[in-house]
Design a protein around this nucleic acid. Structure first.
Lengths: 331, 331
DNA sequence: GAGAACAAGTAAATCGATTTACCGCGAGGT
DNA sequence: ACCTCGCGGTAAATCGATTTACTTGTTCTC
């Protein structure tokens, strides 16, 4: 910057104030053009690190994901990336499991002013004290796809409505014994879905079907379905809270000699690009994942502007039923 | 830091040198313990931004991906993340398309000392001049899953061997008319695969089958297969360079009245977690994607230590054929 | 007893911007 | 002739660490 200032015959202060668009700067038109020309000619780009030090704001938002390979998460990431970029912020990726372990690298990121705020996708292993630890670093924090009561922000999807829509679909097809493969750990989210499922059943005057944890991998989904079928052979349809579990469940159903959807209808929460290429193509309830990423970043940005953390639930766009081939009327 | 220094009754220099493990620092044992205790009590973590400014090294590596949702890329990302974290570096995510557009946010990242080096996954839209532009910023650069001649580093997979293995598998099954759905844009990678495919055919004394671009989405893969079948109805097997295209091709084959693998065998390059859940389960050649991410970060780190950029190809672990259900002998 | 050698630190410049308080100059008013 | 005011800037402190050259007191050596 001082090189530019010298070459343009002004003080560094002018260069800084001009380039930052300082409103209080009075400057002659010719000086303005000269400085701009010199900056351009010298190919000057301000050092962001120095800026960050002085302004105590780095322009980077941390994103802690605990399973990068899950396609659901990469869609959230995409939305977050777009929103951050639109506001001149960049995303720093971090492994949520390292965070939970209290890893050194992570401590440095969280407490070392490397990021202005953190987006956290809490996995099964990320406990409350990790959240408390981050909050104690006075770092703006938003829990993504999660609900909490505490002093931290959160943005959640309308899990209850989604489960309701899925269950309603099965009821409409004529099913009356409808099971549920729940999520594993994140309690609030899981409970919201159970509520939605149960509410739909109640509204239709149907008894609760069996409900057990379906984990969050294809493998876990498969074993969970096997267990469910063993205990409740009368089930004709299930709602699966996790797409990957649903895929595993579908494979397991076939292995158990059931044909989907003839003998068992399956509807999953969350759409993923390969759902339509499965056999049968998977019926799902699509939730606005990209929007979730977007709104999470927006929430962090609001906190950076001094707003109090809020708890929001995305109800628009509403959960959308995508009917494919894995659901049908009961035999 | 000065708070700690004051509370411990020493100068900031001691705190800095002690915490950084400066070998030239002579210090009494009791002083050492006192400073450490005070730092711990005050919950002191050094400001990474200030460090970065002084040392002209930020501890962050940029990763520009042009399609976050592709599961192939998220596996690379995972490997990169692990390696970076193991060396105390963090990953900054960026959209390669924004980079190609010359976006402001990106300029600030690349030229503003926000990152120590950049990992670039060149997509179809990322032209050579983008690479030149980054190189001109004197930023260590490594092209991931790509080959180049230039002054920048690169880490590639053994695409030729992979295509060879895939083709060899089809030949072993008895096929003699074997097509190829190529990759779209990244030329070097695409050509390596064509070479591998052709070499396997030649070695078996079989004529080249038809070869055309299969794009990199399910949609493109589908239309490409339709076109290929229309022109060459005698094809009994194909190698598909992109998994997503392969999925689309499988759907398209069925739509054309062909049964996979009875009428058409399909083998794809790259394994993805859902390949085994497709119907039929997709036969693939698995390449070490996580290792690719790892080695790419390692290559950047070497450049940071002053090493010259290199061009490397990962041959270990070797491409591995994973036989599932989409390949069979010709009818 | 003088000087060397060493232990245990310290002072101060530096990294590159940002920002606040201030300053000199010419024009206009009286 | 003196004062004021607005224009067009500038000087200098600051953000929080790092690092090199230097200092001070003590012990050892001959």
């Amino acid at each position: 910057m001082s090189d530019v200032a010298r070459a343009a015959g002004v003080s560094p202060a002018v260069v800084s104030r001009l380039l930052r668009g300082d409103e209080t700067l009075r400057i002659r038109e010719d000086t303005r053009l000269r400085v701009l020309a010199v900056a351009d000619e010298l190919n000057y780009t301000p050092n962001e690190v120095a800026r960050a030090l002085r302004k105590a704001e780095v322009g980077i938002i941390g994103m802690a994901v605990h399973d990068t390979s899950n396609p659901v998460y990469s869609e959230i990431l995409d939305g977050a990336q777009a929103e951050a970029s639109a506001h001149g912020f960049a995303l720093l990726l971090a492994d949520a499991d390292e965070l939970a372990r209290g890893d050194r690298t992570f401590e440095r990121i969280v407490r070392g002013n490397r990021i202005d705020g953190l987006l956290l996708q809490r996995g099964s292993s990320t406990a409350d004290d990790t959240v408390a630890n981050i909050a104690s670093a006075r770092l703006p924090l938003v829990l993504v796809n999660d609900r909490t009561r505490g002093e931290v922000g959160s943005v959640a999807l309308d899990d209850e409505a989604a489960a309701h829509v899925a269950t309603r679909h099965l009821l409409d097809l004529g099913h009356t014994v409808i099971g549920h493969l729940k999520l594993g750990a994140p309690k609030a989210r899981s409970e919201a879905r159970v509520r939605g499922w149960r509410a739909a059943l109640r509204a239709a005057g149907v008894h609760d079907g069996p409900s057990l944890s379906g984990g969050h991998t294809t493998g876990e989904g498969g074993t969970a379905l096997a267990k469910l079928l063993a205990a409740h052979p009368d089930v004709t349809a299930i709602v699966v809270s996790n797409v990957l579990s649903a895929v595993g469940a579908m494979t397991a159903a076939r292995a158990a000699g059931l044909e989907v959807p003839r003998d068992l209808s399956i509807v999953a929460l969350h759409d993923v690009f390969f759902a339509e290429h499965l056999t049968p193509a998977l019926t799902v309830v699509r939730l606005p994942l990209r929007e979730l990423g977007r709104r999470s970043v927006a929430a962090i940005l609001r906190q950076l502007d001094g707003a109090q953390p809020r708890h929001e639930v995305i109800r628009e766009p509403a959960p959308e039923l995508v009917i494919r081939a894995s659901t049908a009327p009961p035999r």
